[in-house]
């Protein structure tokens, strides 16, 4: 695709646009690949701004309604910017029974951060995720790719303070 139709967006660099073009070219002719395209594009930009969704819809030759529909249906996709560190707290049953609710409250108390939100300085994003399948370590929190087990309310701030 020509550079001229690339919309301007502060969070997407021209290298990112190049990668996005490659992703679209790779999957354009595979039926049902829109979820894969959205995932790969989100890996590049870290979220899916609406300008990007327009671009994907045009590039894939799909109605914008379908692309938006899919992007808003699945919890994996985010249409708002993410923090530098993503905190995923497991809200599965085992973690719930073992007290993840108190842990989440403590995060809110310290960083004024709610599930689905990002701190103003874009340091942390907090996501409540469904069972991570690591119930043996309940309650579980994942920061970026580090799994932290047995995260009690008393321990959580100490762990998070290590992520600048």
């Amino acid at each position: 695709m020509k550079n001229s139709i690339r919309p301007k967006h502060p969070d997407i660099t021209s290298e990112m646009w190049d990668t996005i073009d490659e992703i679209i070219a790779k999957w354009k002719n595979t039926p049902g690949s829109v979820i894969t395209v959205l995932r790969e594009c989100q890996d590049v930009v870290r979220y899916l701004p609406s300008e990007l969704l327009h671009y994907i819809s045009y590039g894939m030759g799909l109605p914008l309604s379908q692309v938006f529909g899919v992007a808003t249906f699945y919890s994996f996709f985010s249409l708002t910017p993410k923090g530098r560190h993503t905190i995923k707290v497991c809200t599965g049953t085992a973690c719930y029974v073992k007290g993840i609710k108190e842990t989440i409250n403590r995060i809110y108390g310290k960083y004024n951060l709610k599930e689905g939100g990002t701190t103003e300085d874009r340091r942390f994003s907090l996501e409540g995720v469904r069972c991570l399948g690591a119930c043996g370590l309940a309650p579980v929190m994942v920061v970026n790719k580090d799994v932290h087990g047995a995260v009690s309310a008393d321990k959580v701030v100490q762990i998070l303070e290590k992520y600048e």
Binding site: P31, G32, I35, R39, V70, F73, Y74, S75, F76, V129
Partner: peptide, 22 residues
């Protein structure tokens, strides 16, 4: 790969998801 929707464990929903739909 799914994209985080519990309902996709339901068989007809799973198939719609593979088709790239909601």
């Amino acid at each position: 790969q799914g994209a985080g929707a519990f309902v996709c464990g339901e068989e007809t929903a799973l198939m719609r998801s593979i088709e790239g739909k909601r």
